[in-house]
Nucleic acid binder design. Structure first.
Lengths: 132, 132
DNA sequence: AGATTGTATTCGAATATGCGAATACGACAA
DNA sequence: TTGTCGTATTCGCATATTCGAATACAATCT
């Protein structure tokens, strides 16, 4: 039921959806690190890491504190990040339902919706577009 | 600490990282729906929905049961999907830390790592590559 | 001053993603 | 049998993402 803004939610998830960025975020769950620290833990070049870090900054998933000549990156939204990582780590096994089960579920939903206002039946979108 | 396979985790998250796909998944948290049901709840054309559904199938986030001429789609990994949606819905507010705080945190981590084996100091990657 | 370090940015090419239009196709209805 | 419905697939283009190479730049070190 929780209505979400799919546009911005998708943008947020896109920031997570890259192996290197996930690895960076995972590293940072262990505490703040500067780019060089990351560089020798991860299989990526410095320029590339900086690029990903820039993206993560723009999404406000990380931020940095300048410590003399190095920048120490840290998680700007640690709970969100930790939860996300945990959820994908768990990796629930896919289930498959029989047609029967689905029919039953749908029926139950229809019943519940019986108390709701009725939408008027309208012409299919396909024929509607075809009429132009 | 939870070591994850960043490659496949990223692939999974990529499937979530699109507004239309998020909307589809959200719809399905309310119970199974056939493509037509989705079509009149979402601002997307049928062909496009089918494309996204195909992708979601390949990632095993959804599956369908054939009910006569219609295909009823349902969530194949409901917990994962619900959790993901919940997490992005919550949308934690980004925090910012002072350089002092970061230094303190780093110091604490260094202390903890003091008991660990020492890595030999090696030439920077840049000069190493430059020597070729 | 010149070299080195830590880091960011810019550019260009390769690859991937997203979308509409067109089409396919099997049920079913007229 | 012709149309229509529900759905999927294919194609072509437009746009976005990713990466390495090159370069920038300020702060040290030599």
């Amino acid at each position: 039921m929780t209505e979400i803004d799919t546009k911005s939610a998708a943008a947020l998830l896109r920031a997570f959806a890259h192996p290197t960025r996930l690895a960076i975020l995972q590293e940072l769950t262990g505490g703040p690190k500067c780019v060089t620290d990351l560089e020798d833990h991860l299989p990526a070049r410095q320029a590339n890491l900086s690029q990903h870090l820039a993206l993560l900054r723009h999404t406000q998933l990380v931020d940095f504190a300048q410590d003399a000549q190095t920048r120490c990156y840290y998680l700007a939204r640690p709970k969100l990040t930790a939860l996300l990582l945990e959820v994908v780590a768990r990796n629930e096994v896919p289930l498959s339902k029989s047609t029967e089960q689905i029919k039953a579920e749908k029926a139950k939903l229809e019943a519940k919706r019986a108390a709701m206002p009725k939408k008027p039946k309208q012409a299919s979108k396909r024929t509607a577009r075809a009429r132009e």
